[in-house]
């Protein structure tokens, strides 16, 4: 097991290296000059050239890469061209909203979708099952921003239950924090509820057809115990996989939600940095996302051991 974890962690190094090279090259090869953006509308060509020089962008791409890679090996991700701030500091400011939003979204999604999927499988072909399948199609089809505007209109503007925008940090109090986060999390969770509920239903349905379920029922176990202890537990591996994929997708998926609800998270930071050609910030954030993706996948693989004792690493 420990060897497996060590091996997987070591395997992140080449992954991150490839990501680092790719993102560095892609940023340099796409059109856009940070110096021209920084200089403002009325700047002259000379002023732009001065800024380019001060940022080191007048050097060749291999030299720029060498400097960046050297700094990276020393744990330095560089300074944002725009905010004159260490990129790590910038990420630290933005990571809380994204983590909070992603965590609450997954929490809502799992708490709601897994029971719904189990009930749908249990009542296969009935009205509940059909309704859930209909909802999941709707959940997949409805764009996040449309759902966000609809919810804001109904829940915030008409009913006045939640604010329409903004984020309160946990340090400002748990209730304000939650009050600002619930609506964005519900918005974002709908698609994950649809996804996880569908996979749960399919997995549990398959498990319910197994001999051990028939045996459990023949032994007279209560139906709830049969469903949870035997069917759901045996169906857990694909559910854990899809939840894991969901977490990884969430990291990128929060962008739209953060924009509509004005949440200053990593998604917004990434979009702003890409649009502004803030190379150091984009490079650092993408590396962080890649690392997170690898770690989440590792955790999902490890969770298989818990759910299915037959799996050994």
């Amino acid at each position: 097991m420990y060897t497996f974890i060590a091996r997987r962690l070591l395997s992140t190094i080449p992954v991150l290296l490839v990501v680092a090279v790719l993102i560095f090259l892609m940023l340099r090869l796409t059109p856009g000059d940070p110096a021209a953006i920084l200089a403002g509308d009325a700047a002259s060509s000379e002023q732009i050239a001065e800024i380019r020089k001060s940022l080191g962008l007048d050097r060749s791409i291999p030299v720029q890469f060498g400097i960046w890679a050297g700094n990276l090996l020393q744990g330095e991700f560089g300074r944002s061209y725009f905010y004159k701030m260490e990129v790590t500091q910038l990420i630290a400011q933005r990571i809380e909203p994204t983590l909070a939003l992603a965590t609450l979204t997954i929490l809502i999604a799992v708490v709601v979708s897994v029971p719904l999927g189990v009930i749908a499988a249990w009542r296969f072909g009935g009205w509940f099952d059909r309704a859930l399948m209909g909802f999941s199609v709707l959940g997949f089809s409805l764009p996040v921003f449309v759902l966000a505007y609809l919810l804001i209109w109904l829940v915030s503007l008409k009913l006045g239950w939640f604010p329409v925008q903004g984020y309160k940090r946990l340090a400002e109090g748990f209730w304000p924090f939650l009050h600002h986060l619930v609506l964005p999390a519900i918005t974002l969770s709908v698609i994950y509820i649809a996804l996880i509920a569908r996979v749960t239903r399919a997995s549990v349905l398959e498990a319910l057809g197994e001999d051990y379920i028939r045996t459990a029922r023949a032994k007279g176990l209560p139906e709830a115990r049969v469903l949870v202890r035997h069917a759901l537990a045996n169906a857990a591996v694909p559910i854990a996989t899809v939840i894991g994929i969901g977490i990884a997708l969430l990291i990128g998926g929060v962008v739209v939600t953060e924009s509509v609800y004005a949440i200053p998270g990593l998604g917004r930071l990434t979009v702003d940095a890409v649009l502004a050609r803030d190379f150091p910030t984009v490079q650092a954030v993408i590396l962080l996302f890649s690392f997170a993706y690898v770690v989440v996948n590792l955790l999902v693989d490890l969770s298989y051991v818990v759910f299915d004792p037959r799996i050994r690493y």
């Binding site: 925008q165 903004g166 200053p264």
Partner: peptide, 19 residues
């Protein structure tokens, strides 16, 4: 200065609600 609120519709909603 609210620098996060840049979506045009979200701005209108926030002003209408007094946020």
């Amino acid at each position: 200065w609210n620098l996060a609120l840049r979506d045009a519709q979200a701005q209108v909603n926030a002003l209408a609600k007094g946020e």
